[in-house]
C-alpha cells in the first residue's frame, strides 16, 4: 500500500527501497524520446516526485519513439507526459516548466532534485546542463549516441568525473540515414532510468 492508501505500482520492493524511491525528486531535462521513456520507467520503478522541463509540444513526428499518443498532438509535452505518467501512478508530485532551460534558470527549475536526467537533443543544451550541474553535488545521468538501428551491445554506460553518467554509444549522432528510433532511444532511456534508480538506492550504477 502507498501512503495515500492505494496499491503500489511496484510490488517487488522492500519498504526501505520504496521509501527511498518515493522520497527522491528526479529532474527530467527534456521530455522527448529519452526523457519521456526514462520517466515512464522511473514511475514503474516507484519514483513519485519529478521536475520536468520541455518547451515543445507533442507532434506526429514524435510518435515513433516518445511516450505520447496521437490524441496528444499539440499538447505541451510537460502536460502530456504528466498525464501519461499519472495513468500509471496517479499519486505523483510533478513540477513542470514549459520554457527553455538555460544557464540562468537550470538550477532553479531543478532545485531540490536528487538527480537530473539530461534528455535534450542538441549538443549545446546537453553540454549546458552537464556543465551547470558539474559545479554542484547533484549527479547528472546523460545520454549521448542513441541514433539509428542495431548495435544494441554498443549502447552502454560510462562515468566521467564523480557524478556524471553517460548512457549511449557516445558516437552515433542524429543525421541523414541515422534518425532517432524507438529501440535504441528506448535502450538508452532504460539505462538512464536504471542508473537513476541505482543512485537513489545507493548502489553502484
Amino acid at each position: 500500500m502507498t501512503e495515500a492508501g492505494g496499491e503500489a505500482v511496484n510490488t517487488y520492493l522492500s519498504e526501505g527501497e520504496r521509501a527511498l524511491l518515493e522520497r527522491a525528486r528526479v529532474g527530467i531535462a527534456g521530455a522527448g524520446g529519452l526523457g519521456s521513456n526514462c520517466a515512464m520507467h522511473l514511475v514503474r520503478a516507484g519514483v513519485k516526485r519529478f521536475s520536468i522541463a520541455d518547451f515543445d509540444v507533442v507532434s506526429e513526428a514524435n510518435l515513433n519513439r516518445q511516450f505520447y499518443f496521437r490524441r496528444q498532438i499539440g499538447l505541451a509535452k510537460t502536460r502530456a507526459l504528466a498525464e501519461n505518467l499519472r495513468a500509471i501512478e496517479p499519486e505523483l508530485d510533478i513540477r513542470w516548466h514549459d520554457g527553455r532551460i538555460d544557464v540562468g534558470n537550470a538550477l532553479e527549475v531543478f532545485s531540490g532534485c536528487d538527480v537530473v536526467v539530461e534528455a535534450f537533443d542538441t549538443v549545446d543544451a546537453k553540454k549546458m546542463i552537464i556543465d551547470v550541474f558539474a559545479k554542484t553535488g547533484v549527479p547528472v545521468v546523460a545520454a549521448i549516441g542513441i541514433a539509428g538501428w542495431g548495435r544494441s551491445g554498443e549502447i552502454g554506460l560510462r562515468r566521467a568525473g564523480k557524478r556524471l553518467y553517460v548512457a549511449g554509444d557516445c558516437k552515433t549522432a542524429i543525421g541523414p540515414g541515422s534518425g532517432p528510433q524507438s529501440p535504441r532511444v528506448g535502450i538508452a532511456a532504460a539505462i538512464q532510468a536504471n542508473t537513476v534508480i541505482s543512485l537513489i538506492l545507493g548502489r553502484e550504477p
Binding site: 542538441t122 552537464i130 549521448i144 552515433t172 549522432a173
Partner: peptide, 10 residues
C-alpha cells in the same frame, strides 16, 4: 585525460 564528443539526439 579522456574526452569524447557530445553528439545530438534525444
Amino acid at each position: 585525460l579522456d574526452a569524447f564528443r557530445v553528439v545530438p539526439g534525444g
